[in-house]
Every structure is written in C-alpha cells, then in structure tokens.
C-alpha cells in the first residue's frame, strides 16, 4: 500500500507529485503578484482616504466597502469575466485585435483588487498610528509629498502595519485556491484533477493540504523575522 502511495506522489510523470508542485508554483506566483498589487492599491487607497479630497475619500470608501462585503468567489467571477471583457472591448475600440489574457494575469489582477481593499484599511490604520509630529517634522523641512511618503510615512507605519499585512499574505495564499473555480490550474484544481484521475481522493487532498500548511508555516517564520527587523529599536511589547 505504502509503495503505491509513493508511486502516486512521485515527481516523474506516472506519479502526480510534479503536477502538484507545478500547481503550487502557480499558486505562489499569483499570491506574490496579487499581494504586491494589493500593497500598491492599499498604499494608494490609504493615502487617498487620509489625504484625498472628499470625492476621492468617498470613492475609496465605496471600493473598500463593496470588496469587503461581497464574497471573494463572486468578486473573482465578476472581475475575471468583466476584466477580460472590458479589456477586449477597449482593444476593439482602439481598433486592435482582441488579446487573450492569460489566467495568470487575470488571477493576479483579481487577487490584487481584493487584497487592495483590505490592505487599504490596514495601512490607513497604521499611518494613523504614527505620531503626528514625525510627519509634521518632515513637512516643516519642506519635503514634497512623495518624498515624505517614501522617507517618513511608509517606514514609520511599517511596524504598525506588519501584523495586518502578514495576515493578508496568509489570506492571499489561501485565496488563490478560489481561482480553481474559474479553471486556473493552481494547486487546488490540479489536486482535484489528480484525485479524480487516480481515485485516491484522500491522499491527494491531504498532500495538497500539507503543501499549503508548509507554505503557511514557512511564511510564519519569515514574518516573525521581518517583524523583528521592522520593530528594531522600538520598545518591547508583550501581547
């Protein structure tokens, strides 16, 4: 029995181990890409919410409320179809031939938009936690907005934002599984295919679970290190 299990999980083609690892790689690509896009959207959203005019603030508020209230699965379907459709209509309007959007790009876009809404709230809270004097000092030195953001606001908010951002990373890795529903061959979908083909459902789902869990645990170790680095020089806090 054990023999066949290892044969099924073997990396070479008769076994499905290689397929699972490729799926994990796809999941990781989307998670990393979506997370980075989400961070960019989050910084933009937070700055817009805190320093924008009334219209910008209300638009950001609408974005975060809608994205956080609608299930990720529904958003993924909507953005996946609407996103590709809108892009192709734009291309048609510009007189170009329709482009075939890769599942990877669409997946990164979708996860990024979802992550961006949560990241906006995390970063907004973190920026508000910075002592006002630090930002005022920067302004008093005549720093322009962009430089102030890069040199003062973002580094100073990092320790406050890290727990929330770390959580978001873990959510991003798990949200990639939802792309299985739109047929993107990430880890969960290839697992189901492998399980369906071999009828060894338990084996493959448990194997995929172990991969996801390993990703989470490795991430936790990395997060602990990053947090320690970001909090250097700050007083110790006991939770």
């Amino acid at each position: 029995m054990d023999q066949t299990f290892w044969q099924l999980l073997a990396l070479a083609p008769p076994g499905w181990g290689g397929v699972l690892l490729t799926g994990l790689a796809h999941s990781l690509e989307i998670a990393v890409g979506g997370y980075l896009l989400g961070l960019i959207l989050g910084v933009g959203g937070a700055v817009g919410k805190l320093y924008g005019n009334e219209i910008v603030r209300d638009l950001m508020e609408t974005y975060t409320i809608v994205v956080r209230a609608v299930p990720e699965l529904v958003l993924i379907l909507l953005l996946y179809y609407a996103g590709t459709d809108a892009l192709n209509r734009l291309m048609a309007a510009l007189g170009r031939s329709p482009v075939d959007i890769s599942g990877l790009a669409a997946g990164i876009f979708v996860i990024g938009v979802v992550q961006g809404a949560y990241a906006t709230e995390v970063i907004r809270g973190a920026i508000k936690a910075i002592p006002a004097g630090e930002i005022e000092a920067g302004r008093a030195y005549g720093m322009p907005g962009g430089l102030l953001l890069r040199r003062v606001t973002l580094p100073a908010m990092l320790p406050h934002a890290l727990p929330g951002l770390a959580n978001l990373w873990l959510i991003a890795t798990k949200d990639t599984a939802l792309l299985a529903v739109v047929g993107f061959s990430e880890l969960t979908l290839v697992t189901r295919q492998a399980a369906g083909a071999t009828k060894h459902y338990m084996l493959f789902f448990l194997a995929a679970g172990a991969l996801y869990l390993a990703l989470t645990l490795v991430s936790n170790i990395a997060i602990a290190r990053i947090e320690k680095w970001a909090r250097r020089g700050m007083p110790q806090v006991h939770a």
Binding site: T176, A177, L178, T188, F205, L217
Partner: peptide
Amino acid sequence: RGTPLLLQLWLLYYG
C-alpha cells in the same frame, strides 16, 4: 487556519 477552506471542503466531500 493554514489551509484553504475550498480544499478542506473538497477533502471532506470527495475524500
């Protein structure tokens, strides 16, 4: 908390 809900669901249902 470390694995996706979709995977758990499929593990229960199919597995």
